[in-house]
Write a protein that binds this DNA or RNA. Structure first.
Lengths: 209, 209
DNA sequence: GCCGCAATACCCCGATTGAGGTAGAGCGGA
DNA sequence: TCCGCTCTACCTCAATCGGGGTATTGCGGC
């Protein structure tokens, strides 16, 4: 009964990875790939059009991030089941995705058979969080969270701007920028901007791009 | 004649991607995956053991990079045919890989059918460089190259070290570190260290990790 | 209503950084 | 052999940055 197959939407910006995933899933008798998307927009549009049972979502997508796509999908349908499948290992990535409604979070290290099992479990309403991911999430809870403004400032530091420029861009004084950065340094446990950017990139607070 | 199939070694650190690629290749009647590796060391060891016709190599590998693996493989066998398959789009990545003996360079955006065609072409002794990659390589030629020492200094800046610390780590004076950085800024066309790191990450001169 | 937090802004001061020089030693190619 | 490049090192000066404060406004939760 092909009507009873789990209908999967597959979202990844790398064509060859998408093709590989689709092939892996298509080989199962109890599931089928009903659509593929390469950007966040495409993912949201196809979700509405296809109403898949499970959406397999990479976080690293051009134009609109996978995180934003998850938000929009979950806002439109609180019962939507989205599995994150990504190479991002940062605790902040994991926290944000699960906090925004992802059913679970898998790294691309995952074995094909495990992915298949998780798709079935999530379709059945479970939320099987891998131990490694759970551990990272616990680490995250121990860390002080940056505020939205602090992330905004740090992002501009990462782009290579000086404090004065950042102040001008955000319409606040250079002094205030310094205050935000001081707090960022405290929270990230570093003593200068390059180290802060480094930590932020590794923890998934910022991303290349 | 299974003996006449193209024997492919598949190197990628993400298990699910490796599985997907292997599945794509295995579906062809004229090629077969004889081995898979997840690190540079494994890749080099398996190359010697299996002597594949074509090696499909990601650049982003733990412990030993794909670039270093290519160097070691090509040093051992100047006729070895290695296809780079990576998400790295930096001109420096492309330059280094092709300069160190890769037969061609594909992005993970590549369509499965194109990958298959390139594997056949490379096995036949061709070097089919995609137009996009060729264009990036031309851009690279217009840019002044950083010296090994300059990259070394920039790497430590990226790690968050101050000039004084970098001097101590490299056993040179802080003054010399400043000179190297001045030259880096000139070559990368930036005016401070965070911008330099940003450009270096995007061009593939440095990598996360 | 009160407390805590986020965001804003200003102060001082020492450390660090970036931009401008000059210069010698060593090495490899023309 | 000589030229050019790389690495090394030092100098000066102005700009930027990081660490230490204090303080006001506004918002949301208890």
């Amino acid at each position: 009964m092909s009507d009873e197959r789990i209908r999967v939407l597959c979202v990844d910006d790398h064509r060859i990875v998408r093709d590989g995933l689709a092939l892996i899933i298509s080989q199962q008798t109890d599931m089928t790939v009903v659509g593929v998307a390469a950007t966040g927009e495409e993912a949201v549009a196809l979700f509405h059009q296809l109403r898949p049972d499970v959406t397999l979502m990479d976080l690293q997508l051009p134009v609109m991030s996978g995180l934003e796509a998850i938000r929009q999908i979950r806002r439109a349908d609180g019962a939507a089941r989205v599995i994150v499948l990504t190479m991002y290992r940062g605790d902040e990535d994991i926290y944000r995705a699960l906090n925004d409604g992802a059913a679970t979070y898998l790294l691309k290290d995952t074995v094909a058979d495990d992915l298949i099992r998780v798709i079935r479990a999530v379709h059945a309403g479970e939320r099987p969080i891998p131990a490694e991911i759970k551990a990272r999430l616990d680490e995250h809870a121990d860390q002080p969270a940056l505020t939205a403004r602090e992330v905004e400032v740090l992002e501009l530091v990462y782009r290579g701007h000086r404090n004065k420029e950042i102040g001008a861009l955000l319409n606040i004084s250079e002094e205030t920028v310094r205050v935000h950065l001081k707090n960022v340094f405290l929270k990230l446990n570093v003593s200068d901007r390059t180290a802060a950017v480094n930590v932020a990139l590794h923890r998934g607070i910022l991303h290349l791009g």
